[in-house]
Write a protein that binds this DNA or RNA. Structure first.
Length: 571
RNA sequence: GCGCCCGUAGCUCAGUGGAUUAGAGCAACGGACUUCUAAUCCGUAGGCCGAAGGUUCGAGUCCUUCCGGGCGUACCA
């Protein structure tokens, strides 16, 4: 299907250009003030409003008087039906036909890029996310990192950025060394066995200090370049990474670059960083013989202004390896340079930022999210209350399959997966980053209401209408025949979508997109139940509604793709 | 103890540089499928926006204190 549309308004989002025009009009009379329009709480009060309260001190008149004054100063525009003064507000009633027509035309013209401001065209960005301890299968808490990160990647690409996605692989360190030790003597270890191995060795190390010494000895051998150590570490890490990327890949989450911590050690980068820090005079050797970085003056909320970079035996600690890697990322010149981290890493990343500052680099931007909790409290590996992402996915697929069989007698595997994963992703992405997600199976596996499948369902229903219309859309339509309130409300929701995307991008907050898409879907469902499309009495109404539906499909589809939710044609 | 984040309907969550009457979903109750997919829609009920002060003509939104939860607070990553 190809669309050839002429935009009746200038390029971009119609409602935004209406706002610009109105603001221009007002500025001619009150040039000094900041003018901002907002959307009234009730459609009865109009579609756009100017609160005149902030102007009162400037003009030294009452808001109501200012509103009354300005009312006469608004020029004649085809998109404005009437302007009314209510209290201190100047309320604008937009012309329904113009809004619907301009919005639908803009959407069909811009298609997959409707909602994008193009802010990233010609620019390069970098996003690091997931980077989890490779010791086992990710639980839904860890998955939140990958989901948020992946959505940010999608949003940036939507904005036009060339994005490089990074995964920083933790293949050094105590935890991995313990895994290597725990797996010693085994022929091979599968990904699913890792958690058991890890729990077991953890217990043994706690009980036996001698064993812990062996762990550190192993680490030391690795860092000094011992071939056997390197080989056995790499073997375990490969199992971890394969397992994790298989699960995340199943959800459509992919990475461009895997950087290994060990690489920064073996290439001598960590040593070099240490040398450069030494030259700044901020690096100190403490009484235990460890290298610590003095962060005095950075006002960090920690008891002691130090970050420890090495063990006494000279082996590197995570912060040092991460500093080396982070500098590497900075040197790519990509901007924005984003890293997604749990809220437990807030202070830690301030330390990294300080370390980079000492070396003269600007640190990446960190996006933090809060942990996923269970209704009874935290997830605990020891109490066995963690919900593994893979289990969540499997349960969701089972339920989606069951629902499809109930409805159609059979289930399409690909669609069942799309619906299931849509539910999984939406359940986590709909919550604002800084809030804890409360995970309970019942609502997480719900396909009704404010869920991923709700979006997919709307999309599928519209597709069904278009299919029954013969797959062809009318070349144009007379939108003045769309007189129902809900048709106008729906168009306004569609028009709102781009500013939601812009905000979501600016704040790295996928939940804003989730909400915006859900609003459109809700408005559509109301419309759907109230307004027949193919069965409309009038051919002109049919055509106009068909194009309205096609725009809704596009917008919901764009929203879903930003969340990484697969649109389905039927379900 | 100190620092950061969160506290909105029974439950899960929205709420845009303060601004016209605080919104959804789930659960509950009552309705709507011979009509484009009922994974839907419509209606009813449900709120001292954690508490108390403060700033403002105006506060869920800003400030202070307190309470509750999450996360930190050098030798894990």
């Amino acid at each position: 299907m190809r669309y050839q549309w002429r935009l009746s308004s200038e390029r971009g989002v119609p409602v935004e250009s209406y706002k610009r025009i109105i603001i221009e009009d007002i500025k001619q009379h009150v040039p000094s003030a900041e003018i901002a329009l907002e959307v009234p709480p009730d459609p009865k009060l109009g579609d756009l409003a100017l609160p005149c309260f902030p102007l009162a001190p400037v003009l030294r008149k009452s808001p109501a008087a200012i509103a009354a004054d300005l009312k006469g100063k608004i020029g004649q525009h085809d998109f404005i039906d009437k302007v009314e003064v209510v209290g201190g507000y100047l309320n604008f009633y937009l012309n329904r036909t113009t809004v619907i027509r301009d919005t639908v035309n803009a959407i069909l013209a811009e298609g997959q890029s409707y909602g994008s401001s193009g802010s990233g065209r010609g620019k390069r960005a970098l996003v690091e996310h997931t980077s989890i301890n490779p010791n086992a299968s990710p639980h839904v808490g860890r998955a939140r990192n990958a989901l948020i990160g992946d959505s940010i990647v999608r949003m940036l690409r939507f904005e036009g950025y060339d994005v490089e996605v990074h995964y920083f692989v933790n293949d050094v360190g105590k935890q991995i060394a313990m895994l290597v030790l725990g797996a010693e003597g085994r022929e091979s270890v599968t990904f699913d066995e890792l958690l058991g191995v890890y729990v077991d060795i953890n217990r043994r190390v706690e009980e036996d200090p001698e064993l812990e010494k062996k762990v550190f000895a192993l680490l030391s051998r690795l860092e000094s370049g011992d071939e056997d150590a390197i080989k056995s570490f790499r073997q375990i890490v490969d199992v971890c990474i394969d397992g994790q990327t298989r699960i995340l890949g199943e959800l459509g989450i992919r990475y461009d670059v895997f950087k290994y911590e060990s690489d920064y050690v073996s290439r001598g980068v960590t040593g070099e960083i240490l040398g450069r820090l030494q030259a700044t005079g901020k690096l100190e050797k403490d009484t235990d013989g460890r290298f610590v970085l003095n962060l005095e003056g950075y006002d960090l909320p920690s008891r002691a202004p130090y970050v420890v970079l090495t063990r006494a035996d000279g082996t590197s600690l995570y912060p040092l390896r991460d500093i080396a890697y982070t500098i590497d990322k900075v040197l790519t010149g990509r901007n924005p340079n984003i890293v997604v981290l749990g809220e437990d890493q807030k202070l830690y990343f301030q330390q990294v930022r300080a370390a980079l500052d000492i070396l003269g680099y600007a640190a990446p931007v960190s996006v933090h999210y809060s942990f996923v909790l269970l209704p009874d409290g935290k997830m605990s590996t020891r109490q066995g209350t963690v919900v593994l992402l893979e289990d969540f996915m499997k349960e969701a697929v089972a339920k989606a399959t069951e629902e499809m069989e109930k409805r159609h007698g059979e289930a399409d595997e690909a669609i069942a997966k799309a619906v299931a994963y849509g539910a999984v992703k939406y359940a986590i992405l709909k919550v604002a980053n800084e809030r804890n997600v409360t995970f309970d199976w019942e609502s997480a596996l719900s396909f009704e209401g404010d869920t991923g499948p709700y979006l997919q369902y709307c999309h599928a229903r519209i597709n069904s209408i278009i299919r029954r219309a013969g797959g062809e859309l009318p070349a144009g339509a007379d939108f003045s025949v769309l007189t129902e309130d809900i048709e106008f409300e729906l168009a306004k929701e569609l028009a709102q979508f781009p500013s939601a995307v812009s905000q979501a991008v600016a704040e790295c907050s996928p939940h804003i997109v989730a909400n915006a898409a859900a609003r459109v879907a809700r408005a559509f469902s109301t419309f759907y139940n109230q307004c027949p499309v193919l069965n409309a009495d009038d051919e002109r109404v049919r055509d106009a509604r068909l194009l309205l539906c096609a725009s809704v499909k596009q917008v919901i589809g764009n929203g879903m793709s930003l969340l990484g939710i697969d649109p389905v044609e039927s379900m």
